[in-house]
Write a protein that binds this DNA or RNA. Structure first.
Lengths: 147, 147
DNA sequence: CAAAACTGATACTAAACTAGTATCAGTTAA
DNA sequence: TTAACTGATACTAGTTTAGTATCAGTTTTG
């Protein structure tokens, strides 16, 4: 069971890169190099993020992409949804008939309950949170060195 | 994001069917009919369940399969693992290099935390729980009729 | 102004996974 | 002995995932 596809992973990392770099336009080639993401693949991911209005772009030389909102306003769950659709751990596979056979649905109900918890957990996380995590991790590293 | 594949869904339903029918050997054809699962597909699923020692089988006429343990001893999470592998919402996609780029790992950590919660939720559920759910649902139905 | 550095749009590929089908051999009960 | 079973395994089609490639258009810059 895979929660995050590479699409999502790359997208999040690209967004983090943009967030750290501030408000200027950054070319895809630079993000690709910094975050070690295949260039052409990243380009497609960025195009989707542009379409979904997470980032804006500028064409031409010294163009690139830039985050549209503050990192604290970009929710992780929204990025996931763009690339992987709604979080729906179990879909009713038997919509056609009336769900006469109950064993089909009890499992679904149980999974649905877990799904809601996952959603709730995810909804608390913004890109800013991830950036804070990075800073925290890098501070720990420094402290360990100075000891 | 799909939490349960059809494999798993079919397997769970087959096991529920076996559990309800008690300790005798039930042929795959019967489970297939009762639970509306494609016969050949079900056969392969059962063979895996046999290999994993969740059910036992008897060959020949009036043979079939039967649950090995009590329904209360069969954990949903084990069935999921048989068909979908370990629950690992986010795998480290970058094992080769040292994880120099921190933005890769903070996301993973966050997802890992959610993953653990999901695991914890799942671990509480046995086949017996699902059967109880079914009974409960069917009681509710009766009460509604008598009103 | 022309070249270089960009994005926009879109088509293509390979590999893996999912769901489902089919076949034949062997076993057992009636 | 034959019908009803499982064991083992091979095949197929469709979808998803990850990644590559190409060409057109735009904008900065030398």
């Amino acid at each position: 069971m895979k929660f995050l596809t590479k699409n999502t992973d790359y997208a999040v990392r690209a967004i983090i890169e943009l967030a750290i770099r501030g408000g200027s336009f950054i070319p895809a080639s630079e993000i690709s190099a910094k975050q070690d993401i295949p260039y052409q693949y990243l380009r497609r991911i960025l195009q989707l993020l542009i379409k979904e209005r997470v980032v804006t772009s500028r064409e031409g030389a010294s163009g690139g992409v830039k985050l549209k909102a503050n990192p604290s306003e970009v929710d992780l769950v929204d990025i996931i949804k763009i690339f992987q659709g709604d979080i729906q751990l179990s879909e009713c596979m038997f919509r056609k008939k009336v769900c006469s056979n109950r064993s089909k649905c009890v499992l679904r109900k149980r999974i649905k309950a877990i799904e809601e918890k996952v959603n709730h957990e995810l909804e608390g996380i913004t890109i800013q949170n991830l950036i804070d995590d990075i800073k925290e991790a890098s501070n720990e590293k420094k402290n360990n060195k100075n000891r």
